[in-house]
């Protein structure tokens, strides 16, 4: 009986440790957490070129039918 309780105790402990560890992945370290509405914090993106913008305007016409 006692053997059974210990087994259950150990397995629960293992489970908790596992769960805790899974929150410790490298990719999840040092992250920002900000719940207020803020400004974009990521990498800048490129602007569309003038040619691309012009081409996009023309391209829309293909959908007219």
């Amino acid at each position: 009986m006692e053997h059974g309780i210990r087994f259950r105790y150990l397995s629960t402990l293992c489970f908790i440790v596992l769960v805790a560890l899974c929150g410790c992945r490298e990719s999840e370290q040092g992250r920002r957490l900000d719940t207020g509405k803020g400004t974009y914090a990521g990498a800048p993106d490129q602007q569309l070129s003038a040619e691309a913008r012009e081409a996009l305007g023309r391209r829309a016409e293909y959908q007219r039918f």
Partner: peptide
Amino acid sequence: CPVDCFYQTDEGVVLHDKDLCI
């Protein structure tokens, strides 16, 4: 977004930075 990974381009397209996304 808690990490402010979204941005909107000049054309109104909503994009996000996956390097920040959690």
